[in-house]
Amino acid sequence: MQITTMDAVPLPDAEIVTALLENRAYYAYALARPKPGVSAAAAAPIVGVDPRHTVREVVHGEVLALVSDVALAEYDLELLRERFQNTLWLEVLARGHQRVIAALNEHYTLLPLKLCTVYTNEASLHEALEANSAWVGAALDRVEGAQEWGVKIFCDRAALVTWAISEVPQLRQLATTVNAASPGARYMLEKRLQRAAEQGADDLRRREVEAIGAQLATKVRAAQAGTLQPQQLHGHAEEMVLNGAYLVAESEFETFRAALDELVAEYSPHGFNFELTGPWPAYSFSTPEQQEAA
């Protein structure tokens, strides 16, 4: 006969019980190390996404995780499920998260974590840090002393088509033929030019956006083409044709900026509108996959 005594029943992890009782969890913002020559300790405390708590360091070997306490009940999965559908809530969280990340970016070299990375206890955070220790050091080396800049280009279709007609030899020739045509023949030729110009404009745009990307890539540590946003989301009248992220060494920023200014001068007459955002911490250059690719 097997006898099960009370003391054979495993006790729940004391840390988990404590977290539940105290309604405590850790919101992790980033993996980090102090910027060379910068003392984070001297800085004013940074208020976390939960304004009742400030950000602190969890040390794991050479790497830090930057965390602040949050109420565990606020991050219940069912509750989060509802909240992620609430645009206002999502925006408040995203802006809070960003405020903290931006403040941390002053003092630390950062690998930003995804929004809403929450640990229920410190031990599991250490476990995650241990599991990722192989690539984190090299990833921090790669982004140290650099910031991410976002370059978006919006393209005015009418200006692009006009440019294509003057730029592409076949289209130019066709346009000359249209102008010289008799009134009777003109209509059909105009239609033909219109169709050809639409196609020509697409080809030209592809070629030029590629050239712009290649030009910028020579001034940066790494470049990444992001997903183009649909018009309802970016809200511009023009179509988005580039959503690039560039990892730029702080010492190289002036060079990058000058190259960008040159491109703006060259392309804005053709309906290309540029937008620069940043500096961001290296969001687009922080994953282990990118580390391998590098």
Partner: peptide
């Protein structure tokens, strides 16, 4: 910064760090 740009990075690009007992997107 537009909320779209923010989410583009903080949700789409940030590092996904798994561990035991993590609540994560």
């Amino acid at each position: 910064l537009t909320i779209v740009d923010l989410l583009d990075r903080a949700l789409d690009k940030g590092v996904l760090l798994w561990g035991e007992l993590v609540i994560s997107v």
